[in-house]
């Protein structure tokens, strides 16, 4: 059983909700990313989505765009992102890592080289934002052979027929995009999310996590109640941004820059 399957199964059995923070690899620097990941796990993160920076993040809002720009200004590459996972795995063999990003860096590296390296460093899942199932046959097939989960998005504009097909292609979990828009946009319409998740539940048994627009304990709790867990990206990247100009970042600074995750964990844990 993959690390993702193991953790989602355990969460369901115990009635826990998954907390999945998203970080941009290399923001503010590569060693800091590893330290942040460890701090996140210590504070209740179940899975980590590690963003691979891309120069043209067309699905991301301004907060993550700036995180990506900070990372790219330091020259972060896909290889660096994979090395972050290797470093993280030195001390953590259990927390699943999902690489999240855009297709071009993987295309240019070459699918085979990428997957070989991903297996080697201990990647568990891959989510390519701009690669729908219809374009992913080759990469998906190779990931499957390698035992790496391929995670796809379902959005409010996805019709039922397509949702079934996407769920059929997905392994690990299904990522439900809470709103029409980009990462970090304002999530206000909880009711439509509830309805859509209810519909989605009828179509698949895969764990469903909700992302986009979850920015604090309250929204995390509300969304986790409806689903198997939540992804928090922009709100965390905004806190990490405060570290950008610091020299010699202390453990206290690392700890205070993940406050949104601590709050989210506490809020989610109050779900009865």
């Amino acid at each position: 059983m993959s690390r993702i399957a193991a953790i989602t199964k355990k969460a369901r059995q115990e009635g826990n909700k998954l907390l999945i923070p998203y970080l941009v690899a290399g923001d503010p620097g590569l060693p800091e990313t590893v330290r942040l990941m460890r701090a996140l796990v210590a504070n209740g993160a179940d899975i980590i989505e590690l963003g691979i920076p891309f120069s043209d993040p067309a699905s991301d809002g301004p907060v993550i765009q700036r995180g990506v720009e900070r990372s790219l200004a330091r020259g972060t590459t896909l290889i660096d992102g994979l090395e972050v996972v290797r470093e993280f795995r030195q001390t953590d063999q259990t927390t699943p890592i999902v690489l999240m990003g855009y297709l071009n860096p993987i295309e240019i590296m070459g699918y085979e080289v990428f997957i070989q390296k991903a297996i080697e460093v201990g990647v568990d899942g891959v989510l390519v934002v701009d690669m729908p199932p219809s374009e992913s046959a080759v990469l998906h097939g190779q990931l499957q052979t390698a035992g790496i989960d391929t995670i796809y998005l379902v959005s409010p504009t996805t019709n039922a027929c397509r949702a079934v097909s996407i769920a059929g292609h997905s392994s690990g979990y299904l990522y439900y995009v809470s709103l029409k828009g980009v990462t970090g946009a304002a999530l206000t319409d909880y009711e439509s999310v509830r309805k859509n998740i209810e519909e989605l539940r009828k179509l698949t048994d895969l764990p469903i996590v909700i992302g986009f627009g979850i920015k604090d304990g309250e929204s995390a709790r509300a969304m986790a109640e409806l689903s198997d867990g939540v992804v928090i990206g922009s709100a965390l990247v905004a806190e990490v941004a405060e570290l950008a100009d610091s020299e010699g970042i202390s453990d206290e600074q690392i700890s205070s820059s993940i406050a949104v995750i601590k709050n989210a964990r506490n809020a989610i844990n109050t779900i009865g």
Binding site: P132, E135, T157, R162, V177
Partner: peptide, 18 residues
């Protein structure tokens, strides 16, 4: 499926697929 040989296609986020 919108391809010219290996080129073209539809590489967008899920929200825009519909």
């Amino acid at each position: 499926s919108g391809h010219f040989g290996p080129y073209g296609g539809i590489f967008v986020g899920e929200t825009l697929i519909a």
